[in-house]
Amino acid sequence: MRFVLRRAGFFVLTLWACVTLNFLLPRLMPGNPAIALMAKFHGRLNPAALKAIEIAFGVNTNENLAAQYVSYLHDLVTGNLGTSLTFFPTPVSVVIRGAILYTLGLVGVTTILAFIIGTLIGVAGAWRRGGWLDSILPPVFVITSAIPYFWVGMLLILVFGVKLNWFPYDFAYDPSLSPSLTLPFIGNVIVHSILPAIAILITSIGGWILTMRNTMITTLAEDYVKMARAKGLSSRRIMFDYAARNAILPNLSGFAMSVGFIVSGAVLVEYVFNYNGLGYLLVQALNAEDYPLMQALFLLITVAVLIAILLADIVTAILDPRTRSAR
């Protein structure tokens, strides 16, 4: 219980630090970006919207920093994230709601797949130490971990999109369809997500494989595994019920954490494929200098990651009592 409280305390403090960072960043930067922004939008936005930007970025206000900070916090708590400039007058929260499902779908499913496939390959690699699987994996991982995510996406577009024309590589669905919960539309979304999913899989699976393999090898050397062998249990039983079951802890806590990173997703992969999820939205906001949208996205991503880390710590502590006293 003390452990949970300590982690929760860290969570709250970090959250506060991130929110404050988000508040201070535009105010600390040389030449408040909002002033340039307001000049740009002057005459195109109604006075209410300009007023909203002023409040959000602290321009032209007579309030001191502390008062601004209080009203900023108040807005956040009441869920008022401001108004998007790109999609004016849609509130930021609505814009985000439109994109979040696509990211959750693409990166979420891919993360689960990478976790399952990677863990299984890791188990197999550790079981047959020195076998072909075990000897090709580490060098392959050196290479895949050093290449940029988005570049893998670009190569996939080139080969399977442009050259072979097997899969679509633009947008999350066919623009001629309108989003609905019908089978043809869902099928269309799935087809569109194949290439970006493969790009993420290729570059993220190695971590799961190697972590699982390494922990599994240590576990296989434990006495209780020898005991199991001595009892004459089947290989399958030893492999999964004795070794893998204990070796999966690091991967499992890693998984809980990467669930948080799903939201931050693969920003650049989404960008390369024009896949209209949160990452793509972030880049769009960036290019359009849509600071309210950008800030809200950053906050959302941070909160998601924080919650996931908190959960990961708690899950690890429940599954493995040894970590409870660790700092």
Binding site: W208, S253, M257, T316, R327
Partner: peptide, 8 residues
């Protein structure tokens, strides 16, 4: 990704 947790 498995290495980021506070304890690990």
């Amino acid at each position: 990704m498995a290495i980021l947790t506070g304890a690990a």
